[in-house]
Computed example of a mutant assay.
Amino acid sequence: MDGLIVYGSKYGTTRRYAEELSRLTGLSAIPCGEFHRLAEGSILVYLGALYAGGVLGLKQTMKVLSLREGQRLIVATVGLADPGEPQNRAHILVSLKRQMSPELFSQAIFFHLRGGIDYAVLSPRHRAMMAAMCFSLRSKPARQRSGEDQALLETYGKQVDFTDFSALVPIADEILRG
């Protein structure tokens, strides 16, 4: 199969998912900064980390992408929020729509993976954003917090990793079915 896995990762979780998906499918995996174009008859798989309403590197990658007949696009997001929650998936799709052309968005197949966070290695900007989010959540009455809100507060400042390589199996199956 002729295709490529492109990923946008800042702290390494998305890169680890991309490398494992590469192992499962035989497709090469490269960072989004190295992507220039997609060869004919190919599949492009984009894995991107979710950050404050955006998917790392997705917009830049989609700018240089135009799918030809027979080419497929799979987009998988990696984030801290549980993608099993419908409201989280809805927020992710809104973010994806903002970063992709309507044509590419309508042609893409989407998957959502759970990542992790290690506050010890966060950039000052990301650390400040998480502190502000937790401050906002603490000001909410406890009965109005979602389970996810509560989990974020309980794990604030710690290292948590929800990486689950078995969640790559449906993506690998979709890649290999073509």
Rank of each mutant, 00 (worst) to 15 (best):
S28W: 05
I30S: 07
P31W: 14
P31I: 13
G33F: 13
G33C: 12
H36F: 12
R37C: 09
L38Q: 06
A39F: 02
E40D: 15
G41Q: 06
I43W: 04
I43G: 08
Y46S: 02
G48R: 02
A49G: 14
A49L: 01
L50E: 08
L50T: 04
Y51W: 12
G57Y: 06
G57Q: 07
V64W: 05
L65N: 03
L67N: 02
R68A: 10
R68C: 00
E69N: 07
G70D: 06
G70S: 05
G70Q: 03
R72L: 04
I74E: 00
I74V: 14
V75W: 08
V75E: 11
V75C: 13
A76M: 08
T77F: 04
T77G: 04
V78M: 06
V78G: 06
V78Y: 02
L80R: 03
L80F: 06
D82F: 02
G84R: 14
E85M: 11
P86V: 04
N88F: 03
R89T: 02
A90M: 12
L93A: 07
V94S: 15
V94L: 15
V94N: 15
S95D: 11
S95G: 13
S95Y: 02
Q99W: 06
Q99M: 14
Q99L: 11
Q99R: 10
S101A: 13
P102T: 07
E103D: 15
L104F: 13
S106I: 08
S106E: 14
Q107G: 05
A108F: 03
I109M: 13
I109F: 06
H112G: 03
L113F: 05
L113C: 04
R114H: 10
G116F: 04
L122N: 04
L122K: 00
L122D: 00
S123R: 05
P124V: 07
P124D: 14
H126G: 04
H126M: 09
R127E: 08
M129N: 08
M130C: 12
A131D: 14
A132N: 14
A132E: 12
M133K: 12
F135Y: 13
F135I: 02
F135N: 14
F135K: 15
R138N: 09
K140Y: 10
K140P: 04
K140R: 11
P141Y: 03
P141G: 01
Q144D: 13
R145D: 12
R145P: 08
S146C: 11
S146A: 09
S146L: 11
G147K: 12
D149I: 10
Q150R: 15
Q150F: 00
A151P: 01
L152G: 07
L153I: 09
E154W: 00
T155Y: 00
T155S: 15
Y156Q: 08
Y156G: 05
Y156W: 12
K158D: 11
K158H: 07
K158I: 00
K158C: 06
Q159T: 15
Q159E: 15
Q159F: 11
T163H: 01
D164A: 07
D164H: 01
F165L: 09
S166V: 02
L168N: 01
I171W: 01
A172I: 00
A172E: 00
A172L: 01
D173Y: 00
I175H: 00
L176K: 14
L176R: 14
